[in-house]
Write a protein that binds this DNA or RNA. Structure first.
Length: 563
RNA sequence: UGGGGCGUCGUCAAGCGGUAAGACACAGGAUUUUGGUUCCUGCAUUCGGAGGUUCGAAUCCUCCCGCCCCAGCCA
């Protein structure tokens, strides 16, 4: 990780950890874990949790953060997901070293714990069906009804549970339940299910098991087995904390981690729920989990985001217990900040307007020097060919410019970046449509490089590309995935109706020749247009594809809007 | 109408009884061979509301209002 990342701002969780270390709780140890379920790809919300958990661990000598797959529900989980999750965590810049774990590694141990709970008279096999359990759970305001199987003897429970494991029963015939309190005001405590029968092969344990532990049972015990000190999770698990503590107390384990909840990340103009992201992928509303419009780590990576920018973003948003929605502009700020410092500058034209330099000799080519990054002279210079016929951006010319427009116009002189001052002397229009199709300019040979010996000023500098030398490429221009700040605003409407039909615009792109050998993943700033990266999936040397990561800040666009 | 949480600038977020940090956004201005960057400047007399305690309250107490989570054999 880069050293110039400022030390993390403090937050309530770091305060708790610091206090615990000060008081020598857990012998001063700090051990966290990032526990994803491998049922989807990681998104920017997970990045917040990853940065928190791994971040805290690295802030203490000997602090550790485990990567643990919470793979207790084989019907939803796949290896493809575990691989992508490992890739994403690594890419973000974190290292779990030799601490890669799976809840499924503990299945045998977990089973033993369950047996122990039965022996303690704190768990029983319930033979009510799904529907009956639901009906007897009670409601928010009414207590539940105790299961008729609640009083089975320890022996009977032991025998039944063993037979459940042995595969003697069909799915749903029995479950193992904790014997707690059907009248608890906390519904989670009304004899929660601990184990269910599921004849599904597991991506790691295959068909070894036909009973699988529930989250509440597996999670706290996995934390305990791994000697986690601080078990950080999101707010919706707050109600489950009572059960987390109950199980660990009932089993009298020697490590009882502290669960601390924080608010999950919400971002405007997108969705961050795995269920909804799966829906977008499976419904083909995007090209896949790594579609550059997706808020997934793999989507952001393909879009051109850097790990550092995401880490900085996560640091800036903070950690608190309040439900909140972060402005996506903050994410965009984070990537601009990083790329401004590191991305080489190049030129390319999105909407070409042909320009002929009348007084520039036909057939000659000049090689001009251009800075690779004005922010960093160490990045050197490159040569750009200049010739008689060029392309500039259509937006950079107006025949009848308004007050504040200071780009090219008839009779006006502007600078072509790193080249010459040019003056527009003639406008060629299409006879039918009246559209401007070509400009004729003259150049001032004394302004080579872009400055005039007599100190004459111009009000604009345009990017350009030599027509004969330009490389034809493709640009993919992305916009917000949704048109609404909160796509879930209308709760009874499908969030997909708020999808932005213009979230992707594909357009030809004429780029300077130095880009001919651009490699997949390379990031650039196309001057005055934005930051782009070479697509890692669809780009090839003969057909370059550039993804627009984010535009540059555009104050001219703001001025235009106001007028 | 049970239980658990949360309400500080447009958006995040510090603050923990001594008189409202910071970031993004926004608005001005300066510098600029990117209308980019950088640099200044401005941006909550007020902390969901009402009472109370106190010399002093965003911080403590009371009541009220609003929002979120929980009734999967999901996590």
């Amino acid at each position: 990780m880069s050293k110039n990342e400022s030390s993390p701002a403090s937050d309530f969780i770091r305060n708790i950890v610091a206090e615990d270390v000060k008081n020598n709780k857990n012998g001063g140890r700090v051990a966290t874990r990032f526990p994803p379920e491998p049922n989807g790809y990681l998104h920017i919300g997970h990045a917040k949790s990853i940065c928190l958990n791994f971040g805290i661990a690295t802030e203490y000598d000997g602090g550790t953060c485990n990567l643990r797959f919470d793979d207790t529900n084989p019907s939803k989980e796949e290896v493809e997901y575990v691989e992508s999750i490992k890739d994403d965590v690594r890419w973000l810049g974190f290292d779990w070293e030799n601490r890669l774990f799976y809840a499924s590694d503990y299945f045998e141990q977990l089973y033993e714990y369950a047996v122990q709970l039965i022996k303690l008279g704190k768990a029983y096999v319930c033979s009510l069906n799904n529907e009956e359990i639901r009906k007897t759970r009670g409601t928010l305001t009414e207590p539940g009804i105790e299961s008729p199987f609640r009083s089975r003897s320890v022996e009977e429970n032991l025998a039944l549970f063993e037979r459940m494991r042995g595969g003697e029963f069909v799915d749903g015939a029995h479950v193992l339940r904790a014997k707690i309190d059907m009248a608890s005001p906390n519904i989670v405590m009304r004899d929660p299910t601990l184990y269910r029968i599921r004849r599904v092969s597991h991506h790691r344990t295959g068909d070894n098991w036909c009973i699988y532990p529930m989250y509440d049972f597996a999670h706290c015990l996995s934390d305990s087995i791994e000697k986690i000190t601080h078990s950080l999770c999101t707010l919706e698990f707050e109600n489950n904390r009572e059960l987390y503590d109950w199980i660990l107390d009932a089993l009298d384990v020697d490590c009882h981690p502290q669960q601390i909840e924080f608010a999950r990340l919400n971002l405007n103009y997108t969705v961050l729920s795995k269920r909804k992201l799966v829906e977008l992928v499976q419904g083909k509303h995007v090209s896949g989990w790594d579609d550059p419009r997706m808020p997934t780590i793999s989507g952001l990576r393909r879009r051109g985001y850097t790990p550092e920018s995401i880490r900085n973003f996560c640091e800036r948003i903070g950690v608190a217990r309040r439900d909140s929605t972060v402005d996506i502009a903050l994410l965009e700020f984070s990537i601009r900040e990083d790329l401004n410092k590191h991305a080489p500058r190049v030129m390319g034209i999105l909407r070409p307007l042909k320009v002929v330099i009348d007084n520039f000799p036909e057939g000659t080519v000049e090689e001009l020097d251009a800075l690779n990054n004005p922010e960093d002279s160490a990045m050197g210079t490159r040569k750009i060919p200049f010739s008689r016929v060029l392309y500039i951006e259509q937006d950079d010319f107006m025949e009848d410019p308004p007050k504040k427009f200071f780009r090219l116009a008839p009779g006006r002189e502007v600078r072509l970046r790193y080249a010459y001052y040019v003056t527009c002397v003639n406008v060629v229009k299409d006879g039918q449509t009246g559209r401007v199709v070509e400009l004729h300019c003259t150049y001032d040979p004394d302004t080579r490089g872009g400055s005039s010996p007599n100190g004459r000023k111009v009000k604009a500098t345009l990017h350009w590309v030599s027509a004969h030398h330009a490389v034809k490429a493709e640009a993919r221009l992305y916009d917000h995935l949704f048109v609404k700040e909160n796509p879930n605003e209308e709760k009874d409407m499908d969030f997909k109706t708020n999808l932005n039909p213009n979230s992707l615009k594909i357009t030809p792109f004429l780029v300077e020749p130095s880009l001919a050998d651009a490699v997949p993943g390379a990031r650039y700033q196309f001057e005055r247009l934005g930051y782009f990266c070479v697509d890692t999936v669809d780009s090839s040397p003969s057909a370059l594809v550039f993804n627009r990561t984010v535009t540059l800040r555009d104050t001219w666009a703001k001025i235009k809007k106001k007028q």
